Measured scan of single mutants.
Amino acid sequence: NQASVVANQLIPISTHLTLVMMRSEVVTPVGIPAEDIPRLVSMQVNRAVPLGTTLMPDMVKGYA
């Protein structure tokens, strides 16, 4: 099972991601792979992401 990136807190819209905001967890459905966490740092979310939500490629500007 592959770990995905999950929000560690509420991430407001247009926030630049930091390591503190993300954790890796095995979830269904599978989202952005956990090994991409370093790549996600300083990218922006294009919507509010609630605590515990799996980050999907379409939620992060410039990821997909």
Score class of each variant (00 low, 15 high):
Val5Arg: 01
Glu25Asp: 08
Lys61Arg: 15
Met56Gly: 04
Ser14Arg: 11
Asn8Thr: 13
Pro12Gln: 08
Val26Glu: 09
Leu55Asp: 00
Val41Lys: 04
Ser24Glu: 11
Pro38Gly: 13
Leu40Trp: 03
Asn46Lys: 08
Thr28Asn: 12
Asp58Glu: 13
Val60Ser: 00
Gln2Leu: 10
Val45Phe: 02
Gly62Gln: 07
Arg39Gln: 10
Asn46Arg: 09
Ala7Gly: 02
Leu51Asn: 14
Thr54Ser: 04
Pro57Arg: 08
Ser14Gly: 13
Val6Trp: 03
Ser14Lys: 13
Ile11Gly: 00
Asp36Lys: 11
Ala48Asp: 15
Ala34Val: 09
Thr15Pro: 00
Thr18Lys: 11
Val20His: 12
Ala7Cys: 04
Lys61Asn: 14
Gln9Asn: 06
Arg39Tyr: 11
Gln2Lys: 12
Ile32Thr: 01
His16Leu: 10
Leu51Cys: 08
Pro50Thr: 10
Ala48Trp: 13
Ala34Met: 07
His16Ser: 15
Ala7Lys: 02
Met22Trp: 03
Pro29Thr: 05
Ser42Glu: 09
Asn8Met: 07
Val49Lys: 00
Glu25Ser: 11
Val27Lys: 08
Met22Lys: 00
Val49Trp: 04
Val60Leu: 08
Gln44Asp: 03
Pro50Asn: 10
Ala34Thr: 08
Pro38Tyr: 13
Thr18Ser: 11
Gly31His: 03
Ile37Lys: 05
Ile13Arg: 11
Leu40Val: 04
Asp58Ala: 11
Leu55Arg: 01
Ser42Val: 04
Gln2Gly: 12
Val60Arg: 00
Ser24Ala: 12
Val49Leu: 08
Thr15Ser: 13
Met43Trp: 06
Gly62Leu: 08
Gly31Phe: 02
Pro12Arg: 08
Met43Ile: 04
Glu35Pro: 08
Pro57Leu: 04
Met43His: 09
Gly62Phe: 09
Ser14Gln: 11
Thr18Gln: 14
Ala3Cys: 07
Val30Ser: 13
Val26Asn: 12
Pro50Tyr: 07
Pro12Gly: 06
Val41Phe: 04
His16Tyr: 15
Leu17Arg: 00
Val45Ala: 05
Ser24Val: 11
Asn8Phe: 04
Leu51Met: 13
Tyr63His: 04
Leu10Arg: 12
Pro12Trp: 04
Thr54Val: 09
Ser14Ile: 04
Val5Ala: 13
Pro33Cys: 06
Ala34Lys: 06
Ile13Gly: 09
Pro12Phe: 04
Ser14Tyr: 15
